[in-house]
Design a binder for these strands. Structure first.
Lengths: 339, 339
DNA sequence: CTGTTAGCGCGTTCAG
DNA sequence: CTGAACGCGCTAACAG
């Protein structure tokens, strides 16, 4: 056990003393104010460097009334969606001087409330709340003294600012791509029906089909977000005998299961049947045979936009309301042979 | 655009004034000191509640000299390993009063240095550094004025504190499990040889085989951490003709590829060949057919231990050095039929 | 150009 | 039991 007595933090006072000036002068010198002799400045800067002086941001904050810190309150730290969102946000903030305080509430209102208190105590300048599902979530209320942006899950209150993925549009894009590749008999195997994401994607897909004057092949088959369900549902679909030349799948995992079963049954993809998923989750898309065409929900962009809107709100230039991020089609081998 | 002029933060002064007492009394009342009349306290608490008073942690910190904040500097935010580590740490901290400042350095030394400065400026009490690979990484040096714990990737400096996964042990556990299920001819398909994790696991596996007086089936086949590589390598292995009854795979993804190819070739798992992976990554293990036996590296435990050691270091009761976390075998259908 | 003074929000003596 | 005064590290306003 090394009892390396950590030295007391070096303060501006120390620097000033050793440089033979007052604290105020030292402060000015280090902050590039122009009311200080060039030589004096050099001396101060030099001493500061030598002492390894790091200004105490806390003290600055308490004075400035703004902490240069935002809270990131997530309910989906184990899920794979909050991570890219987090990265996008961290990215947008990192450019400036803003640091991120991360909290995980695990979908527990009590824990959320607790973390909120802590964050407010730390005088965060703003807050981003990441939901665990895309369904609207309860607002934190209007009494929170800093701007709040809800992302992934929108707030259920109109006056709040939210950034969400456009799942309806994603559904349409999927179907439009299949139509563009000449498919006409399109089935739909989705995930857990209690998720708005599943229902929204289905709605978008249905709308695109209807717009093309086509009927879907059977109803949307809801189940769970798993490969096993994809396999099972695809099996049932085949056994029912209605011909189809494409399957829209609720997620990449479901799509993966569908691909596996089609392969088992000797059905060629994409020649006989095209398959498309959602999320563009690399481990799933790249490992599939053939590689999986998917709709990327642009989570990183969502994170970045959330950060940007938070800044805007701080400037007082943000309009409340829900903002959708446009999804993006990524074409691979499961819909186009050459891809 | 709602220009809701945000009200000035309510301070202890405001509370005291409205309660008709001095700041000092208000402070004592709210902090449960026993030198205050019960009725006065009630009144103060009441006013505080009504005003939505939240004590300014920054002000407290500046005084206490400790911020109740730790830095979490990761280089693998996009990878899937840092996330569970982060959760474990967040968990351990959350119990107390500690908040986490998250930074992503993306394996860039410049960015890392920059973030370090910012974090120190914010007077973090300690720092956890998460690597992107398991290979040792350069130490931040001994001049950092707060305790540092390196995790996932250990520091290359002996005097530093590190928490790592025991990949060698993991390799042994994998082989021992296969031996326990009666396998004797064990092949090994791994990932990217430039990763210490791949080499360590192979070393552990080889040692366990040797201890049992067995020879491996061919050399370790290194490649990449992908399903495609797993398929390709398994194909080659079969084509070479040397009989084998088990395959240790460098990761769950590789294992997934191996399983797929064996299935294609009509080889039954686990009857003819057992397959085992590493990481116990749920999307991979549960989607596989059969479900995949895997070694869980206990990332969450690593995060928790890192947090605990950081606390210990703050108390001055931590011994430096590398600590390994024991991996855990999770048995599923790819090694045991009934599982 | 430099030093002195005041004060940010809070906790903690120490008198009253 | 209560309140006035001081200090934490720093910056802004004002004097010198």
């Amino acid at each position: 056990m090394t009892t390396t007595a950590r030295p007391r933090k070096v303060t501006l006072r120390d620097v000033a003393a050793l440089a033979g000036v007052s604290v105020a002068t030292a402060s000015k010198a280090l902050n590039g104010k122009d009311q200080v002799n060039e030589e004096t400045r050099r001396r101060v800067v030099d001493v500061a460097e030598r002492l390894g002086f790091t200004p105490n941001t806390l003290a600055q904050s308490i004075l400035a009334g703004t902490s240069g810190t935002v809270g990131l309150l997530t309910n989906d730290l184990d899920g794979r969606f909050s991570l890219p969102i987090l990265m996008g946000a961290e990215d947008a903030f990192g450019a400036g001087q803003t640091s991120v305080l991360l909290c995980d509430a695990r979908d527990d209102a009590i824990r959320e409330q607790y973390h909120l208190r802590v964050l407010l105590g730390r005088r965060i300048d703003g807050l981003i709340v990441v939901g665990s599902k895309t369904d609207p979530r309860p607002s934190l209320g209007q009494k929170v003294p800093v701007p709040v942006v809800y992302t992934y899950a929108p707030s259920d209150h109109d006056a709040d600012a939210s950034v969400v993925a456009d799942n309806v549009r994603a559904g349409s894009i999927a179907v439009e791509h299949l139509l563009a590749t000449g498919r006409r008999r399109i089935a739909h195997i989705s995930g857990d029906v209690t998720y708005a994401a599943a229902r929204d994607r289905a709605a978008g897909a249905a709308a695109a089909l209807a717009a093309a004057g086509l009927e879907p092949v059977g109803r949307v088959r809801y189940g769970s977000w798993s490969e096993a369900w994809g396999r099972a549902a695809a099996g049932v679909l085949l056994d029912e005998g209605a011909p189809f030349d494409a399957v829209v799948c609720g997620s990449d995992q479901v799509a993966r299961g569908v691909l596996d079963l089609l392969r088992d049954r000797g059905i060629r993809v994409p020649d006989d049947v095209a398959v498309i998923g959602f999320d563009n989750w690399e481990p799933m898309t790249s490992g599939a045979r053939p590689t999986l065409t998917s709709i990327d929900m642009q989570f990183e962009t969502m994170g970045r936009r959330s950060a940007e809107r938070l800044f805007a709100a701080l400037d007082g230039t943000d309009a409340p309301g829900v903002e959708s991020v446009e999804p993006r089609l990524v074409v691979r081998g499961s819909t186009v042979a050459s891809a």
